[in-house]
C-alpha cells in the first residue's frame, strides 16, 4: 500500500460543487500535488420533482469549468486538499444569459487513522472533513444557470478501502451540512412565501462506491455516487422555476482513470466521465473531464536550498 502514497489525487468531480478526493489514496509526507482539471457537463433533460422533461427554452444547459486543485501531505496519514473552480454556464436555446466566474473554494482534511495488511489484503479507514465557501458574489438564485448554490458547507466523510493485489474497492458516506444563503430578493416562495432574503438550505448525504484496478502507473475505477438531499427541500412544480433550496438528488455512475507518465513520474494525467441515471430537481447531466497533475517534493527542495 505504501507505494501508492505517492499517487496523486484521483479526482471525482462531485455533484454540484466539484470537490473532494474520496479515494483510498494518501499523498506522502511533504509532497505537494497540484494541477488543473477541465470539466464539461451538460444536460437536455431534467426532473421537475419526479417529472422528467426537456425544455426547448433552455435547449442544452452546459457548465464548463476549470478547477485548480492541490493536495499536500502533512504526513503520510494526513493530507490537506483544496480546489477552486472557475465556472461558465450557458443555455443553447431561449433568451437567458449564461453566467461565469469563480465559484467555491473547498478545503479538505483527509486523515487515515488505520491501515492494516492481513495476508494479501490491505484494509484502511479514513476520515475526511471538508469546508467550502463561495469566493465570488455570484447569484445562487439564477438556476439553472447560476454558478453554484453559494452555500457555505461543512462535511464529514467516513471511508473504508480494501485492496487485494491490484484490485480494490472503496466505500464512503458523508453528511454535508449547508449554511443558509442570502439571495437578491427579500421574499420568495417555497410552499408559502417567506419574507426574508435568507434561505434555509437543506443538508445532504452522499454515498460513494468505487471498484477498480490500482497500480503505480495506472488507476482505473468504476464509480457509483448517490447524492440525497435531506429534509427541508422541496420539489419544482411543473413548469415552475428552480430554487436553491429544492430537493436535489442524483444517482451517478462513472469511470475515473489516472495515468502516471513513465518518463516523468511526477506528472500524471487524469480523465473520466459520469452520468446521472436517476434524479430529482436536477439536470440529467453527462460529465466529462480531464486534467494534469504534478508532484513536488517540498522537503527535497528545502534541503537543496539549505545546501
Amino acid at each position: 500500500m505504501k507505494k501508492f502514497y505517492l499517487s496523486c489525487l484521483l479526482l471525482a468531480p462531485l455533484f454540484m460543487n466539484a470537490q473532494t478526493e474520496i479515494d483510498g489514496i494518501m499523498m506522502s509526507k511533504n509532497n505537494f500535488c497540484f494541477g488543473a482539471v477541465y470539466q464539461y457537463s451538460s444536460w437536455d433533460e431534467y426532473w421537475e420533482g419526479t417529472f422528467k422533461r426537456e425544455n426547448l427554452n433552455l435547449g442544452t444547459v452546459s457548465t464548463k469549468s476549470v478547477a485548480l486543485m492541490g493536495n499536500y501531505g502533512v504526513s503520510d496519514k494526513l493530507n490537506i486538499i483544496f480546489s477552486l473552480p472557475y465556472v461558465e454556464t450557458k443555455a443553447s436555446a431561449g433568451t437567458m444569459e449564461g453566467q461565469k466566474g469563480l465559484q467555491d473554494l473547498s478545503l479538505t482534511i483527509k486523515y487515515m487513522p488505520f491501515e492494516k495488511t492481513i495476508g494479501k489484503a490491505t484494509y484502511s479507514l479514513y476520515a475526511l472533513g471538508g469546508l467550502s465557501a463561495p469566493v465570488s458574489n455570484y447569484s445562487a438564485d439564477y438556476l439553472p444557470l447560476s454558478l453554484g448554490l453559494k452555500s457555505k458547507t461543512a462535511s464529514l466523510r467516513l471511508m473504508g478501502d480494501y485492496q487485494r493485489g491490484r484490485f480494490f474497492s472503496t466505500i464512503s458516506g458523508a453528511y454535508v451540512k449547508r449554511a443558509n444563503i442570502t439571495i437578491d430578493r427579500n421574499s420568495y416562495y417555497t410552499n408559502e412565501i417567506h419574507y426574508t432574503n435568507e434561505v434555509d438550505m437543506p443538508d445532504a448525504i452522499s454515498v460513494n462506491f468505487r471498484i477498480g484496478y490500482r497500480s503505480n502507473r495506472l488507476i482505473a475505477e468504476a464509480v457509483v455516487d448517490n447524492w440525497v438531499t435531506q429534509s427541508g427541500g422541496f420539489d419544482i412544480t411543473t413548469n415552475n422555476m428552480p430554487f436553491p433550496s429544492n430537493t436535489m438528488n442524483a444517482l451517478k455512475v462513472g469511470v475515473n482513470t489516472k495515468y502516471t507518465l513513465k518518463k516523468i513520474p511526477a506528472l500524471s494525467l487524469i480523465g473520466g466521465c459520469n452520468f446521472v441515471t436517476e434524479g430529482r430537481n436536477v439536470g440529467q447531466s453527462n460529465t466529462f473531464y480531464g486534467g494534469l497533475f504534478y508532484i513536488l517534493n517540498l522537503k527535497k527542495t528545502t534541503q537543496e536550498n539549505e545546501k
Binding site: 482534511i109 472533513g129 461543512a154 453528511y175 443558509n180 417567506h194 419574507y195 426574508t196 434561505v199 427541508g232
Partner: peptide
C-alpha cells in the same frame, strides 16, 4: 468540524412578517 456541523450553522430564519 463536527462542532461546526452541530452548533454554528443555525438554520432559523427571521421573517419580517
Amino acid at each position: 468540524l463536527f462542532l461546526t456541523l452541530n452548533y454554528s450553522c443555525s438554520d432559523e430564519l427571521t421573517e419580517r412578517n
